[in-house]
Design a protein around this nucleic acid. Structure first.
Lengths: 114, 114
DNA sequence: GTACATACTGTGTGGCGCACACTGTATGTG
DNA sequence: CACATACAGTGTGCGCCACACAGTATGTAC
């Protein structure tokens, strides 16, 4: 048999974990409501579960990285989120972190090649 | 005050999480024992705690991605680890995943720029 | 008007894996 | 003999995601 699929799947999930917040923060530079956020992320190739998304939005707002507002649009009440100033700062720092980690991983992965 | 340092630190840790396994698997294409692995990773810019490293090595071995062997070197018993064939396959797939996630994140982060 | 899809926002639980603190032996060195 | 450091662990707590579940509102086909 090939590598057990569930093991690989678990590793994939683990690898995805931290990137979710980065993707959410990056997308919320433009205002979005939950559902449109999920849709946009999916289009970019990032599938996020509602059970992960909504609590994450709450968390980020309680940390002051996001601000939200109930508003009517298209005959519906929706909660709109966007980055706060602190959130923009956090996004910048996390992006820098991400690039640094990328460099480290690339040096490791390319480095060992025969 | 700037963005609370502990919040950012937590986000950084979260972001790092998944990359640890990838860094470990990548480094173990060449045989290493725990301590030298930790040292090598640190040189590449990846600090990993022993409390994370050793259990991870166990886990990866129990999943068949690594093989290990006790051996004496420099008058000391050390446990040497290296990638198994399955591990090499997993590394390849995870690397591909990583690149895909990178592309997705880049499109998100660059994309929104004014 | 009723059945169904889908837009839209949530909650609760389980489990996995990292960080942190701690333990313990062996080797080398002043 | 004291101390550093190489080396390999263990145990606990906590954070966060996946998965399953819940519930309302709008549009549409019949």
């Amino acid at each position: 048999m090939p590598i057990a699929a569930d093991i690989l799947e678990a590793l994939r999930l683990e690898l995805r974990r931290g990137t979710l917040i980065l993707a959410v923060l990056g997308t919320l530079r433009a205002e979005q409501y939950g559902y449109s956020l999920k849709t946009r992320l999916a289009e970019a190739g990032v599938d996020i579960d509602e059970g992960a998304l909504y609590p994450m939005l709450r968390r980020l707002e309680s940390q002051g990285l996001l601000v939200s507002e109930w508003r009517e649009e298209g005959k519906r009440q929706k909660r709109f989120y966007r980055l706060s100033a602190d959130g923009a700062g956090a996004l910048e720092q996390l992006t820098a972190e991400w690039r640094a980690m990328n460099a480290a991983l690339n040096s490791i992965i390319e480095g060992g090649r025969t």
